[in-house]
Computed example of a mutant assay.
Amino acid sequence: MISHKNDKPFVCSYCDSKFRRKEHLKGHMFTHTGEKPFTCVECGSKFSRRENLKVHAHSHTGDKPFQCSQCGLRFRYRASLNRHLVTHSGDKPYKCNACPSAFTRMQSLKKHLLSHTNEKPWSCSFCDAKFKDKNGLGRHLLIHTGLKKYQCPQCEAKFQQGSQLKRHMTTHTGHKLFECPVCKAKFTRNGSLKKHLQSHGSTKVI
């Protein structure tokens, strides 16, 4: 029996963290040694804690054990559920010190703060271009890599960006997304609209 005077008798020799049970200390030690004894049988990924392996396993099974009590939506990870819950509460605890803006997530606040500082921490490894966020860098990198991961389900066409695929799909669906601001004529392609505008004496798309 563990005495109440010393309810965490197992002490880490690296950082002095204390634990109630020996197996908890053993699991903690892996964070210092770098050892990852828990291996995913599906993909070979390794983890230092059994709990992390269990969470990872959901990515293979499709299980979503965490359910929102408000709307019934289910999530693979507890962290995802916690982020979702703020959509019901309306709480925005992360406030900007430079303006009245407030956010539900710390990551959103960090991204917003760049609009005040003009800082661009994401740098391209191929050229000198810099970006405020990871998404901007990702879109830019396609220029260098030539990767086209968005494929049309109707034909063999491939595109670098989802927006390009969306525009291409209009050639199959017949949807006309581009409207002339002068006569309201509609076109499936932006280039066709620009050509049409010349008949009005303009090449500017509003």
Rank of each mutant, 00 (worst) to 15 (best):
Q67M: 14
K95L: 05
R105A: 13
K148R: 15
G72P: 02
S125Q: 09
R74G: 07
V55I: 14
H112M: 04
S89R: 09
H140M: 07
D128R: 07
T117M: 12
T39P: 00
A57Q: 05
Y150M: 04
R49Y: 10
S59W: 02
F66Y: 14
S69K: 09
R50Y: 13
N135T: 14
E51W: 03
K130S: 13
R49D: 03
K132G: 15
G162S: 13
P65N: 03
L109R: 08
K36Y: 09
C71V: 04
A102M: 05
F30L: 11
L85S: 13
K120M: 10
S115I: 12
S80Q: 09
G136D: 00
S45D: 06
F38C: 07
N118Y: 07
Q160S: 15
K158V: 12
Y150D: 01
P100Y: 04
Y77A: 03
C152A: 07
K148S: 11
T117K: 12
D128M: 03
L141S: 11
H140I: 05
G162A: 13
F66M: 07
Q70T: 13
K149R: 14
G136L: 02
E156M: 00
S108I: 10
K134I: 02
E51V: 08
C152V: 09
K54S: 09
H84V: 05
R78P: 04
Q70K: 14
A157H: 08
K46C: 09
F47V: 02
S89T: 15
H58S: 11
K111T: 15
S80D: 12
K130W: 08
K64C: 06
V41R: 06
F126V: 15
F47G: 00
A129V: 07
C127I: 07
L141G: 03
A157G: 06
F131G: 03
H112T: 06
Y94L: 09
E35W: 08
V55H: 03
K158F: 09
G136W: 01
R50W: 11
P153I: 05
P93K: 13
H84W: 01
S89Q: 08
L53D: 00
C68I: 08
M106P: 03
K110M: 15
H112C: 04
C68P: 06
A79R: 12
D128Y: 06
W122N: 15
E156Q: 08
E42K: 02
E156I: 02
A98C: 10
C40W: 00
T87R: 04
K149I: 10
F126Q: 15
A102P: 00
Q151H: 03
H60A: 01
R49L: 12
D91R: 10
P121L: 09
E35C: 11
E35R: 11
C152S: 06
P121T: 10
H112A: 06
S89V: 11
F66A: 05
T33L: 06
E119N: 09
N135S: 14
H32G: 07
M29K: 13
G44W: 02
L85D: 07
R83C: 11
D91I: 10
F159L: 02
M106N: 15
A79L: 09
Q67S: 14
H140L: 07
F75P: 00
